[in-house]
Nucleic acid binder design. Structure first.
Lengths: 204, 204
DNA sequence: CGCTCGCCATGACAAATGTCAGGGGACGGC
DNA sequence: GCCGTCCCCTGACATTTGTCATGGCGAGCG
């Protein structure tokens, strides 16, 4: 018989992580060798235990799942990464795939299904939740240029133009122009609605 | 021996709900009699199965945990409500307690601990996570009047004043006055930052 | 009864923001 | 080399905001 798949579980919600560990541990061919509650901790655990598959939550303190995946890609090329997320936004999926993530599923799947997906990913295949994939495709690519996205992000917390200009080392007029074009491209009423839209689509 | 505590589990994330059901089911004195993935479904399940304790996620499609709790309070007075939440904001705790919720815990607790808390709540006691309680106390009460909060909420999606005025059936000038006073009270830079602050503190 | 407070409104002014029309420079593709 | 695109800026303008002063109305309270 082949050895069981060694898993790393990372999620900041102890309740979920523990429950998941217990359920996945019931499968004969899966074994949880490490758990982590934050991004940095996940990295440390991965280095120490060298799992076959890392199951990462997208939103974690310290470093999010995609960042961790990026680091793992170079440090442990043999370790496949599977991202699990509560509310998946189209842009996140794109970023995740770009980071070399092999699987991307919402938390609405059952544990049974997750176990299957883990096996799929471990076998070298990819798995992306069909619904999330459809969202990502229909949402399309971000129409924003990098500067537009950057300025929009700085505008996210409601800061006035002058402050954004300072933080971006741009002239206030330029900031307003970028903001204006971003708002137009997104079809929003104003920059704040634009920020919301961009966030929803995962473009910031 | 006494009969086992009958539980209703409601959470839109199947992964968590299933895992939780499995883990809590392992306890001798707990039995999961119903599961739901949305607010309305939770209500229907509660009516059908009349559980002793309802374990509700705070954020669910349809109706959030607090709304469900309010309905349950009148329909099934014998059913104690325990709210579980990912990221607890101070105001939510306050609203929950006002709705007659008996327990309020973050998802960072372990399943073991949750089982104990369920027993505590079923025994007629209350339980609030110490950390969340501290946050709620230090954050204090909302300084906003009801109209200020209402207008601020309508401003949340970045709508212009005229639109807010329309939706609130107020004059645009009045809206600006309320917004202005809310911004002042919260010590924010502008209304959008104010919305963020109020959200963080759970005041909207 | 007078007081305070929340509620709703108006009008006016200053400041911030959204929009438009420009113009230069860099860089890659045809 | 020319063209398109993105980058960065300027200046001017209309619109939207934030802020303030002011007033009327009703409810709760000493």
């Amino acid at each position: 018989m082949t050895a069981a798949v060694r898993l790393l579980l990372a999620d900041d919600e102890h309740l979920i992580r523990g429950a998941l560990a217990a359920l996945l541990g019931l499968e004969d061919d899966l074994v949880v060798v490490a758990e982590a509650a934050s991004g940095p901790e996940a990295l440390a655990m991965a280095r120490a235990h060298r799992p076959d598959v890392a199951v990462l939550d997208l939103q974690m303190p310290g470093a999010d799942g995609v960042k961790v995946a990026t680091s793992l890609r170079t440090e442990l090329p043999g370790c496949q990464v599977l991202i699990v997320t509560g509310h998946g936004r189209p842009g996140h999926l794109k970023r995740a795939l770009a980071a070399g993530v092999r699987g991307f599923v919402p938390k609405t799947v059952s544990a049974q299904r997750l176990a299957e997906i883990i096996r799929t990913v471990h076998a070298g295949h990819r798995y992306v939740d069909p619904e999330l994939a459809a969202d990502a495709i229909s949402a399309g690519d971000s129409p924003l240029t990098s500067r537009e996205a950057e300025v929009l992000e700085l505008a996210a917390d409601g800061a006035p133009v002058t402050e954004i200009a300072e933080r971006a080392a741009l002239s206030p007029g330029t900031v307003r122009n970028y903001l204006s074009s971003a708002v137009t491209k997104l079809g929003a009423e104003n920059r704040h609605a634009a920020v919301r839209l961009a966030r929803e689509r995962g473009w910031v």
